[in-house]
């Protein structure tokens, strides 16, 4: 069933269009930076952009930071929101279940396919970012002699950079999985993929809004988007683990609760679509 779901994902034109669109914004930013060579002033604009002018390899991380607040969650919510509700809307859900595919099994296969999409999205954004960054921006080769400067100002070796980029990819993917879990949960409640995707986005927008509200300070550490951008801390020297660890913890809790609820609902639901 997992193989079938992955085939469905890859045979769907929408998957590839979404990935293309996702990579478009960082590409535009890279081109504009390369042409104008004008970076945002330090402390303003997306993270890393001031750093990438000197060395383009960091643009893979900058690209993640560009799509993380909105584009990536939208793409993930659309794909994950479609997982169960899309089958329900098309009517194929009832046929899958009488084939028979166990409900838990189907949900797991859907989750794996969503996970595959999240990884594909995050890796493709950082890979395209890396290629564009090295091609268009700082094109000095990254060797031991020309180390990249960390945010804290000290030098990072190429191997340190690679490890940190991989950690950042993992961290962003985990953050996106919590979004996916929310969309999958809603997807088991409604027969409309659009409602599920928008519901998941509303959840994120709500969380981001509360983060700006001083009165909500006591609950802010528990909001899903609170530590999203903490992957930037991975590029400090030494790595500032505190927020990253908290972020991982929060995302895992959200993941477990949301997926548990999705399973509980879907496995006992009357399928009337």
């Amino acid at each position: 069933m997992i193989a079938v779901e992955l085939r469905k994902l890859t045979r769907r034109p929408r998957t590839w269009v979404t990935l293309l669109m996702l990579n478009l914004l960082p590409a535009v930013v890279a081109v504009l930076l390369a042409i104008t060579n004008v970076g945002p002033r330090p402390g303003q604009g997306p993270a890393f952009l001031s750093a990438v002018l000197s060395n383009g390899s960091l643009f893979s991380v900058a690209a993640l930071a560009i799509v993380l607040p909105l584009f990536l969650p939208v793409a993930v919510a659309v794909i994950a929101g479609d997982s169960v509700a899309g089958e329900a809307q098309a009517g194929t859900l009832r046929y899958l279940l009488v084939r028979p595919v166990g409900r838990t099994r189907l949900l797991v296969a859907k989750l794996v396919s969503v996970l595959a999409f999240v990884l594909l999205a995050v890796v493709s954004v950082s890979a395209v970012g890396f290629v564009l960054g090295t091609a268009l921006l700082g094109n000095e080769p990254v060797t031991a002699q020309t180390s990249v400067i960390s945010i804290s100002g000290s030098l990072l070796s190429p191997s340190q950079i690679v490890v940190r980029i991989l950690l950042a990819i993992g961290y962003v993917a985990l953050s996106m999985l919590a979004v996916a879990a929310m969309a999958v949960l809603l997807s088991t409640f409604t027969d409309s993929p659009l409602s599920a995707a928008l519901g998941a986005l509303a959840f994120l927008i709500g969380s981001s809004l509360l983060l700006t509200l001083d009165a909500a300070r006591s609950i802010q550490p528990y909001l899903p988007t609170r530590y999203w951008l903490s992957f930037i801390d991975l590029f400090r020297d030494p790595i500032l683990w505190r927020n990253v660890e908290r972020g991982v913890g929060i995302q895992l809790v959200y993941l477990a609760v949301l997926l548990g609820a999705a399973w509980a609902n879907f496995s006992t639901k009357d399928i009337t679509s």
Binding site: R12, A90, R94, V98
Partner: peptide, 14 residues
């Protein structure tokens, strides 16, 4: 068991 329930349903793009 083979079943047809309330009309057929397929993935339209395939």
């Amino acid at each position: 068991v083979g079943a047809l329930i309330e009309g057929p349903a397929w993935y339209g793009h395939l």
